[in-house]
Write a protein that binds this DNA or RNA. Structure first.
Lengths: 175, 175
DNA sequence: ACGCTAGGAGAACGATGGTTCTCAAGTAGG
DNA sequence: CCTACTTGAGAACCATCGTTCTCCTAGCGT
């Protein structure tokens, strides 16, 4: 049922989908919806928190696969590329939600900030494991964020590869 | 009068400000508003197009100042840092608008894509002038985009400096 | 001074959407 | 078989907002 909400919110933006539509496509009655989530804001927050965990799980499952720490860093960008190529890709759900609601809904702003902080933390771990500094982790995060928004707006997955080669250049050379 | 609309739309998101509020803070009557812009969509498009020109003008005025092509590239990130530090900074108006309206308003999606394409084109020029390739321009663009969204979400101007040092590392070494 | 036009302030209208209410159907327990 | 509780479908309610309309005021030409 959160699946339906997630698909709708992500595809069209939170404010462009009504509760009636969530109910119709999820098959859950309004009454039940409102006893699970007392307001739309609660539903939105649940949507973001769930997407945070699944998104990061998917990423780490993919990027933690290689043995070589350098390969792990690069795998992040491979994963991004495959994500960008999906037909329903429409950028980062958190960045979108932040632009839409960050100024008026502090709970949304917080959820977004936490998601991004967790992502940066993960990259910092990969960066230091690959022999870099924490600053390298931040730089990788900037490349990834930039690739996500650029891919969304331009509609091509190419930014993932550009970010990947930039990351390669920033990584310390093989010891 | 577009000043008022711009301030409101940027600060709170397009869908969180009504035409009544535009009228109140701008002092322009609704009648006049609607004879200038037949619909809110037209006003939004005008807002984006105007912000595109002023934003890029401000950027180039600052970044074209140094003589050294490498300095010009780095100046872009200095300009970003100063922008991020402004108290009303709330990320990239175009990314925000895209997340909010890109899926439902093709005119908005187009305006955003054009703005970003122009920005990438400008960076590509700086990159080649500094002895790099067009691919370097794309990488610089990714760093800048990432810095913008990260600064917005985290609330600190620090990403500008991180992007700057990454850019420095990616630039070809002084000949 | 008098009509006439333009423009503004704000009410009015219609649609949409978040939230709640009604009512009927289904089910478990006696 | 009957009753009490739950649940779902959808109507109803209320606020908001984009858009239009009404009325009133102010200036201006004669």
């Amino acid at each position: 049922m959160l699946d339906a909400a997630e698909a709708l919110f992500y595809a069209r933006g939170v404010q462009n989908v009504g509760m009636d539509e969530v109910r119709t496509t999820s098959g859950v009655s309004l009454k039940r919806l409102y006893q699970l989530f007392p307001s739309k804001g609660d539903l939105v927050e649940a949507y973001l928190r769930r997407r945070d965990t699944t998104w990061r799980q998917d990423l780490t499952r993919f990027a933690d696969a290689p043995e070589d720490p350098r390969e792990r860093v690069l795998a992040v960008f491979d994963w991004l590329e495959q994500w960008f190529a999906q037909p329903d890709f429409r950028g980062c759900a958190f960045i979108n939600a932040f632009g839409e609601l960050g100024a008026t809904a502090p709970a949304v702003a917080d959820a977004v900030a936490e998601h991004k902080a967790a992502f940066r933390h993960y990259l910092a771990g990969l960066a230091t494991a690959a022999g870099g500094t924490a600053a390298l982790g931040e730089q990788l995060a900037l490349l990834a964020e930039g690739a996500i928004t650029t891919a969304a707006i331009s509609g091509t997955p190419a930014p993932a590869r550009q970010a990947r080669t930039a990351a390669q250049a920033l990584l310390p050379h093989r010891a």
